[in-house]
């Protein structure tokens, strides 16, 4: 289950970054991947749709959001938490 969530998130972000999923590592930041704030908003929308969750994210203060988007690893962890909390 967790692997599945991880892989689906990475696939979504890879598509946004126009990279192969294998090129994405946990410590990478959105900026490393060339994802700007609008790209981040799009990725979050795609993740919400994929997992039927609601992600608290405000583009004006990404660092203050409960949803940590600083690295790929933190995004995966935050989504996994939301997916687990859904059931």
């Amino acid at each position: 289950m967790t692997t599945d969530v991880h892989d689906r998130i990475i696939a979504i972000i890879a598509e946004q970054a126009m990279l192969d999923p294998s090129e994405i590592r946990a410590e990478m930041t959105p900026a490393d991947l060339g994802i700007d704030s609008l790209g981040m908003v799009e990725s979050i929308f795609a993740i919400e749709e994929a997992f039927d969750i609601s992600i608290p994210f405000n583009a004006n203060e990404p660092e203050k959001s409960d949803f940590d988007v600083s690295t790929m690893g933190s995004i995966v962890a935050a989504v996994e938490k939301l997916v687990a909390g859904k059931g």
Binding site: V41, N58, A59, N60, E61, K64
Partner: peptide, 20 residues
């Protein structure tokens, strides 16, 4: 809402803690 640039609590232009 889709753009995620709206504030949920107040409009605080130029303030460091503005959030949309």
């Amino acid at each position: 809402e889709g753009l995620r640039v709206m504030s949920r609590d107040a409009c605080r232009p130029f303030s460091a803690n503005r959030n949309g």
